[in-house]
């Protein structure tokens, strides 16, 4: 498949992720959108890696996955703390500090 397809696909996924982060109100969905962004990047990296015949891109994907896991762990921990304090996962409860 031409490389362009991958670029467009991952761009589309990335944009969906970005929009999701910006527009969704539920924290968990926002988390998922962030993951979507990262996975769009992974897809792109793998596509380029295959295109260039260079393994570095795939190794980078490993790094991204590892880091994303750590990030999600921390993010969910934060979410749980928030949930314990507010009993809600709606982003609206986070309005004590004005944007």
């Amino acid at each position: 498949m031409p490389l362009n397809y991958y670029i467009w696909l991952s761009t589309a996924l990335f944009v969906i992720g970005v929009l999701g982060v910006l527009y969704r109100r539920n924290i968990i969905i926002i988390f998922m959108c962030i993951e979507l962004m990262l996975n769009a990047v992974n897809l792109l990296l793998v596509a380029f890696s295959a295109h260039h015949g260079d393994g570095a891109g795939q190794v980078f994907v490993f790094f991204i996955m590892a880091v994303a896991a750590a990030e999600v762990a921390v993010g969910l921990a934060i979410l749980i703390v928030i949930y314990n304090n507010t009993r809600s996962t709606d982003i609206k409860v986070l309005n004590k500090l004005k944007w």
Binding site: F62, A70, A73
Partner: peptide, 26 residues
């Protein structure tokens, strides 16, 4: 109802360790 935090911890730890294990395959 919310379930016990331990389950959540297990899930998180799994994610972390699993990802570390990924590095060991290559």
């Amino acid at each position: 109802a919310p379930f016990h935090i331990k389950y959540f911890l297990v899930a998180i730890l799994f994610v972390l360790f699993d990802v570390e294990v990924i590095f060991m395959y290559p």
